[in-house]
Measured scan of single mutants.
Amino acid sequence: YETDHQDYCEVCQQGGEIILCDTCPRAYHLVCLDPELEKAPEGKWSCPHCEKE
């Protein structure tokens, strides 16, 4: 399936195990989030940028 999400972390610009925001195209490593997450959230997730909106 096709997605318009970026394939690198918004914070460190590296690829790998990233989680995708359900609201925007941004993607993040769990450890690059502040506060960092230990595991990917279940269900819908909005990144810090979208949470501020």
Results as ranks from 00 to 15, higher is better:
41 P>I: 13
6 Q>P: 14
35 P>C: 04
24 C>W: 01
28 Y>T: 04
29 H>C: 12
32 C>G: 00
44 K>C: 09
12 C>E: 01
18 I>C: 02
15 G>F: 09
15 G>K: 13
14 Q>S: 10
24 C>R: 01
16 G>S: 13
29 H>V: 00
53 E>M: 03
2 E>T: 15
20 L>K: 12
23 T>E: 11
29 H>R: 01
44 K>G: 12
43 G>E: 11
2 E>A: 09
41 P>E: 07
19 I>Y: 05
24 C>S: 01
37 L>N: 08
41 P>A: 12
30 L>F: 09
32 C>R: 00
46 S>I: 13
19 I>H: 13
28 Y>G: 07
5 H>P: 13
44 K>W: 05
33 L>W: 11
46 S>Y: 04
2 E>H: 11
39 K>P: 08
14 Q>I: 03
1 Y>M: 15
24 C>Q: 00
51 E>R: 03
52 K>G: 11
2 E>F: 11
29 H>K: 01
44 K>A: 05
16 G>P: 02
38 E>P: 14
15 G>I: 03
42 E>M: 13
10 E>W: 14
34 D>Y: 04
10 E>D: 07
13 Q>V: 12
30 L>I: 01
31 V>D: 06
16 G>D: 13
39 K>Q: 05
9 C>F: 00
24 C>Y: 01
32 C>Q: 00
51 E>W: 05
34 D>F: 09
27 A>G: 06
37 L>C: 08
15 G>N: 13
30 L>E: 12
30 L>V: 07
17 E>P: 03
46 S>G: 10
28 Y>Q: 01
17 E>S: 03
21 C>S: 01
41 P>M: 07
8 Y>D: 06
37 L>K: 09
23 T>W: 03
40 A>R: 09
31 V>S: 07
28 Y>R: 11
19 I>Q: 11
33 L>T: 13
17 E>W: 14
48 P>I: 11
49 H>T: 13
6 Q>V: 06
41 P>G: 07
14 Q>T: 14
1 Y>N: 04
32 C>K: 00
40 A>D: 05
2 E>M: 15
3 T>S: 12
29 H>Y: 01
7 D>H: 04
7 D>K: 04
15 G>R: 13
1 Y>R: 12
42 E>Q: 05
14 Q>W: 05
35 P>H: 02
19 I>F: 11
46 S>P: 07
23 T>Q: 07
29 H>L: 00
50 C>Q: 03
25 P>T: 12
30 L>N: 09
